[in-house]
Simulated scan of single mutants.
Amino acid sequence: MAASARRLCHIAFHVPAGQPLAQDLQRFFGFQPLATREADGWRQLALRSGDAVFLVNEGAGTREPLYGLDPRYAVPTATNLCFDVTDAGRAARTLEARGCCVLVPPVSVRDAQGAATYTVVRSPAGNLSLTLLERTDYRGPFLPGFQPLYSKTGPGWISHVDHLTLACTRGSSPTLMRWFHDCLGFYHLPLSPGEDPDLGLEVTVGSGRGGLRLTALQTPSCSTVPTLVLAESLLGAASGQDQVEQFLAQHRGPGLQHVGLYTQNIIEATEGVTAAGGQLLTPPEAYYQQPGKENQILAAGLEPSRLAQQGILLDGDKDKFLLQVFTKSLFAEDTFFLELIQRQGATGFGQGNIRALWQSVEEQAARSQEACG
């Protein structure tokens, strides 16, 4: 039996001292300080927007940071996913029996607000470790050992984490899917009818031009864990051509590529991010000029020129649509980024936009060559 995850507690990052991730999350994306801890050379700051919590571990201490471990990774990166479980000790024993590497045996932490027990295991997804946390009786705003921070309420653009996307090496998705199923209780979520769970959804972009393979995983309906999406490049793509290959090169291996943050009003959220100075990716003009795109946007009750101005992508048909916009990397390396996503009945992850963007990039390049010629 798997050590079933019940909900996502937080996503942890490791950055060197002075790296501005924590400040950028507050200034550009409306996250607010939740709790802090400074000890053993670490400054740990938990930030929250809605139910989305990021834990930024800054520095390089002599001991492991609380609720995680120091991976000593080559670049600043997302390093850990922390999930609530009913019994951390039993979860550690279960995973160890399945051959998993338990990096931190169960540890109990207590303060005036109660107690929590956690264990850390290695995942097969690159540098990413997983913390399994038992905190049923804890009454504080975050976790034992942290000092609460009471800050003003943020702009409220983000309500929760919609999905987590792992960039994987080619051919590794089936192995990762089996691990998350056997160890944490995830199971295959089809993105198209009749999809083979071993193959996932192949988002091809034309003969010989490559594309992406997407495999979505979810936990049973009794939990509130975000969907986990595995993304890998298909054969045929030129080296470094797509976002997954770029991540693998810059990140120096697999890992958490992006977090999809749900917003109920993506236009308002995007306006707020850009007004604060946050940097969003701008789709090529050709994306909005594709046949049928204007009518598709109008069918969703939106204004095409406004979406184009803000770089918002729209996918879907009939009465089910998905809107998304992507930030530039939050680090100097072209690695981890955020996605703002709004759903109008759609359940996918913008696979139509992957094809459309790929095609529009090529069309834009072709037009540029013609202009130069």
Rank of each mutant, 00 (worst) to 15 (best):
R37M: 02
P20Q: 05
A112K: 02
G200W: 03
L8V: 08
Q290A: 15
G59Q: 05
N80A: 12
C100G: 02
H163S: 11
L128A: 10
T131Q: 06
E134I: 12
L69N: 05
F29S: 01
L81I: 15
D40N: 14
L176K: 03
N295A: 15
A88S: 12
K152C: 09
Q250D: 13
Y150M: 10
Q264G: 14
C168Q: 12
Q23I: 10
N57G: 05
T77R: 06
R343F: 08
I266C: 02
S305A: 12
L132P: 06
G311A: 06
T117N: 09
A97Y: 04
A300D: 03
K320R: 13
L189P: 00
T79M: 09
G210Y: 10
Q250K: 03
R27Q: 12
V102P: 04
P254N: 06
V259R: 04
S233E: 14
Y118Q: 08
Q113L: 07
A167T: 14
P106Y: 00
L189D: 13
R170K: 13
P174C: 07
Q26P: 05
R63G: 08
P144K: 01
L69E: 07
D315R: 03
N80Q: 13
Q359W: 07
L235I: 14
A276R: 07
Q324V: 01
G316C: 09
G99N: 02
Q243M: 10
L323N: 00
D242Y: 11
E271T: 08
E285P: 08
A92Y: 01
R306C: 10
E232D: 15
G301K: 00
E294Q: 06
G253Q: 05
P283S: 02
F321N: 07
S221W: 11
T94S: 12
Q351H: 13
A238T: 15
L47M: 11
Q290T: 07
L322S: 05
D137M: 05
V229D: 07
E245F: 09
L34T: 08
A35L: 00
T79N: 03
G154Y: 09
R209V: 15
F146S: 05
P220S: 08
V107T: 15
L128K: 00
E134G: 09
R37C: 01
P284W: 02
Q246E: 15
D317C: 14
T62L: 15
D317T: 15
R110G: 03
A286Y: 03
G350F: 05
H251W: 10
T77N: 04
G18P: 05
T263L: 08
L164S: 10
T86R: 00
E339Q: 03
T86Q: 04
G373E: 11
E285D: 14
W358T: 08
E134K: 06
A60I: 07
C100A: 11
P144N: 04
P71C: 08
D137L: 12
C100P: 01
N295S: 14
T94R: 07
G352C: 12
T117S: 14
L8A: 02
V121N: 00
A332C: 07
V325D: 00
Y73I: 04
G208V: 13
S173K: 00
V259I: 15
R139N: 04
Q257N: 04
G194N: 03
